[in-house]
Design a protein around this nucleic acid. Structure first.
Lengths: 219, 219
DNA sequence: GTTGAAATTAGTACGAA
DNA sequence: TTCGTACTAATTTCAAC
């Protein structure tokens, strides 16, 4: 059911382990960078574009795959053309201690493209793709509403998908003209924001709703 | 800049044209279904799994690609392993008549994985992936806040990504054990929800904020 | 980690059904 | 349209360096 192993892995915290398995160097990142744009490129061509030998490319490619850094290869389609032109976000409030049931029900819904548990006013966000608006309505009122774990929902329609990248890599910052913020302080461990004590102004961070501490133990 | 041509295409409405170009039959859908799970499969193996000849598979594969139904092929990676384990959603309120500038600024931010314009309380939702929480803070307060088009933001962290599918296909419904709702009425044009006048109960639909009607003309 | 050569497989171009 | 086959080009594997 396309379950993600990212954080759910060993029931650990949200940050999880890092650096276990492969140690990714700059070459690995280059490979991921090429594969992001062209997932069907031959390993030979990949080697050439990255600037390494073919044998090396095969080794690294296999290692990335075997180690789970690369989960799978897939296509990116035009949903409009495929017949599902309507996208909606459904923010769900989940009844406490029913997370397990909520997740189980989600696995039964193939029309769900993405689901994440969030902090803030709601507990989870679901992204669905449907043929028309009425189907979204039916989905929310007939299917989601019937799940006992669902306490309430709030649906929002997506008017336009401005951009979607397959994934982001650490090296992306500063490439697309994004001015990498200068590091005047010699402590790289402390962020600029922390060091400067910037006023947040109209910016708002929304923490987790009450009673969601046991979230990870339940699921 | 990975701009999506879905709805933005010819400046049309959110629903857009459908059925222009290739007429997708069941075989096309099967191909998309296989490619979703294994984007690197050889066309020969694809032909075998779909049940058509190699020549036919090549023709259809090329047609899907040339027609834009398949946009590109890409990899799916473990973001944790790649060094960007923190995901956040930033809901943005955009100053009216500054949509064009907002979109231009977005293109300059490679750390943004997804951005969609939505109905509801906010105007847009941005998904970013960063190495740590402080970086999200810096991104919101230093970069987003400096964009004149951004009136306000609300940030929410993703605690767990429960599921992510590459894409959804029309034929998915009813496959994963999802009980396809029965169609007792012989009018397939009218949805069940419309016909039954279901009470929405705790379900809420959130329309677009005022003054966003001219959204599509600006961008 | 690299290069080169053998074996396999992929991609193309036909004619036939 | 779709299929089957033959032909050409490329890729992958495996060896030695």
């Amino acid at each position: 059911m396309t379950e993600m192993s990212s954080n759910s892995g060993s029931g650990g915290g949200a940050t999880g382990r890092i650096g276990i398995g492969l140690e990714l160097d700059a070459t690995h990142m280059k490979i991921l960078d090429v594969l992001r744009e062209n997932g069907r490129i031959s390993v030979s061509a990949l080697a050439e574009r990255v600037g390494i030998s073919r044998a090396n490319a095969y080794t690294r490619f296999e290692a990335l795959r075997a180690d789970g850094v690369i989960r799978r290869f897939t296509a990116e389609i035009d949903h409009q053309r495929a017949g599902l032109g309507i996208v909606a976000l459904i923010f769900v409030t989940v009844r406490q201690q029913m997370w397990r049931q909520f997740r189980a029900q989600l696995a039964q819904m193939p029309e769900v493209e993405y689901c994440a548990i969030t902090t803030g006013q709601h507990d989870a966000m679901i992204q669905v793709r449907m043929a028309d608006v009425a189907e979204v309505h039916a989905m929310v009122t007939e299917r989601l509403a019937n799940i006992p774990a669902v306490k309430a929902t709030e649906t929002v329609f997506i008017l336009d998908e401005v951009l979607r990248r397959p994934y982001v890599l650490p090296g992306d910052r500063g490439r697309g003209g994004a001015p990498r913020r200068p590091a005047p302080s010699p402590e790289p461990e402390q962020t600029q924001a922390q060091a400067q004590g910037l006023p947040l102004g109209k910016m708002r961070f929304v923490g987790a709703a009450e009673g969601r501490a046991a979230l990870r133990d339940e699921s």
